[in-house]
Design a protein around this nucleic acid. Structure first.
Lengths: 353, 353
DNA sequence: TTGAAAGCGCTAACAC
DNA sequence: GTGTTAGCGCTTTCAA
């Protein structure tokens, strides 16, 4: 096995009695070729099951046709959804994706970015981690700047001091959807739960929430953004536990509803609420963001803001490809959330509405 | 932006007053270089933030240092866990991974495999989809055969008619763990739920289950593998619904426990059981496979067989790398499941044990 | 220790 | 329409 002569564009050309360029031409369909020859070539290609080397091709035209994607962690459903959407969009544009996980670790991000640069990715997409942070990591920004001039860099958050293309979900609009829904159902004491204030999307949600509290004259029940919060189920539970404790100490009533920073924390909050002897949604409603699989799996199902992942993914990739092609692309694109999926967790009217 | 002369090994060499080969030598650490020159070169590399092109390197030594991974769907936690484990292991071996989703579609699998071949991946890992099937897709096997001679091909299932390297979880051993646990808790009427019999791992579990029924003299309550089953939450729920219907019609009692083909179906079964007015685990115990995140999130937590994903991933990658290096690698490796994580869903003794 | 030169497999002028 | 040639950016003999 494996001792057959290596088949290349040359060996094909030789056997077909034509020049390598002719083979290349039929391979890339870049020029007309005598149909007889073409046929002969095609046959040989089929016979040897020949696939031209993308590596060699990449060297030649200095376009790798690779779009690199750095993602915080694919094991997180949100990123997995995003990634798949991007992969699909990239394939449509005839690009291959190279996806690398950073686990939100800055050193890892630098390393992975390095790999992508090594492979001469035509564009790089970065979602989660460093680009989610309010305060941009200096070193990373520098690294990005050193390549952003030649490689379009698309982020789903922000990266201060760089001129990346930013494509992000309109987190404020998403907050509006949630609060509108809660208010329409008579929820007046609303708590915001989870997340970290140094994460940009969380920061945006937090501020919008404050605005809405004023606008609707809500009784803001608790806003948890300091040093306690997070994005996991466990953190959601802990944070809700702490909220209960805080309210008890202050002799305040429980909230009508909690807005969780994502579906994971919502599930955690759900656990905590039940643990404390309350019912969802009869005693407390729960709503959240992302509408990942989990939101529909737990009982009661969690009301959640759904994004159009496919659309988001293709906008990101489109931006990257347009930038690669030298087109003028807007540096900042907001993607509207798709819709609010109302489930049992908030399907309850109170205060006589 | 982007108008600076391109920096290559040549430009560095020129500016350093040495030859390209010398630069290459310091880059690859492949030979001793005068320390002064070395220093000068290193400085320039740093100054320009130079990263050698993996593409060019790939062309040169015909080793791309890419390990291609075809996965059914990363949005599935099981595969995400597997993928991350493989990525980590690959990075340790100085390989870059290229991960592509097939969505279990054979056409897509062929297409993605094609991409990997184009990129001259040094090895290809395929998990889920075609390699899970009892009856191997002929065309795919052919395609694999046409490259397996030169590119090591590692699958987590099987691919008849090819000489792939197989690394798989010992599904029979996993079934033993589950049944042992159930029997130890006095469960005698046990049902096997979900999956499709044309999927290899399911087939193995099914057969082992039959054996164990005899061995322990269990009252096999129902084995669902015909045309109804599946691997999703919804399918789990539907299948359990059907089991109830079937038992009711036959005027048979409900089972003591159900073994679900994976955590998703277990959650579905949980929903169905509650819907029918029974409690878990008091009326029916539930156990399953994979121990993905979900198993610990739902309430009650699902008892599940945990795998050592890191270990599994590194065994797979190890196999691939060894094969690349021409070492003699066993064509078939079984990985033992790590442990049984007992959670509330089966933490109940019955029948006076 | 170091440089020259060839070559990896392909594409892209440029002639014919 | 087709072949020749020259690279793309690197590594690797082979000499020196």
């Amino acid at each position: 096995m494996g001792k057959e002569k290596k088949v290349t564009i040359y060996s094909i050309a030789k056997e077909a009695g034509v020049s390598p360029s002719t083979v290349s031409r039929v391979l890339t369909n870049s020029a007309n070729v005598n149909s007889e020859k073409k046929e002969r070539i095609l046959e040989l290609i089929d016979k040897y099951n020949f696939t031209p080397s993308a590596v060699a091709r990449g060297l030649t035209d200095t376009k790798s046709k690779i779009i690199g994607i750095i993602v915080a962690d694919v094991r997180n459903n949100f990123y997995a959804d995003m990634y798949v959407a991007c992969e699909r969009a990239a394939v449509k544009e005839a690009y291959t994706v190279m996806m690398l996980n950073s686990f939100g670790d800055i050193e890892m991000e630098k390393k992975q970015l390095g790999k992508l640069i090594e492979w001469r990715a035509d564009a790089i997409i970065h979602m989660g981690g460093a680009v989610d942070s309010m305060k941009t990591n200096k070193e990373y920004a520098e690294l990005v700047n050193s390549v952003a001039g030649t490689i379009p860099f698309v982020v789903t958050g922000k990266l201060d001091g760089t001129n990346c293309y930013r494509v992000q979900i309109d987190a404020a609009a998403a907050m509006d959807m949630l609060v509108d829904h809660l208010v329409a159902n008579g929820n007046m004491k609303i708590a915001l739960l989870g997340g970290r204030i140094d994460v940009e999307s969380t920061y945006v949600k937090y501020n919008r929430f404050k605005d809405l509290v004023s606008k609707y004259n809500l009784k803001e029940n608790a806003v948890l953004t300091d040093n306690w919060g997070g994005y996991s189920v466990e953190e959601g539970e802990t944070t809700m536990d702490m909220l209960f404790k805080k309210l008890t100490l202050a002799a305040k009533p429980i909230p009508d509803a909690v807005i969780c920073i994502n579906d994971n924390t919502a599930v955690g909050a759900l656990k905590s609420i039940r643990k404390h002897g309350y019912r969802v949604p009869e005693d407390i409603s729960i709503v959240s963001y992302d509408n990942i699989n989990l939101a529909s799996i737990v009982e009661p199902g969690i009301t959640s803001v759904a994004y159009d992942y496919e659309g988001f993914g293709s906008t990101i990739v489109r931006t990257a490809v347009d930038a690669i092609d030298g087109k003028n692309v807007s540096r900042m694109i907001f993607v509207k959330p798709k819709e609010l999926i109302v489930r049992q967790s908030s399907d309850y009217k109170r205060n006589n509405v």
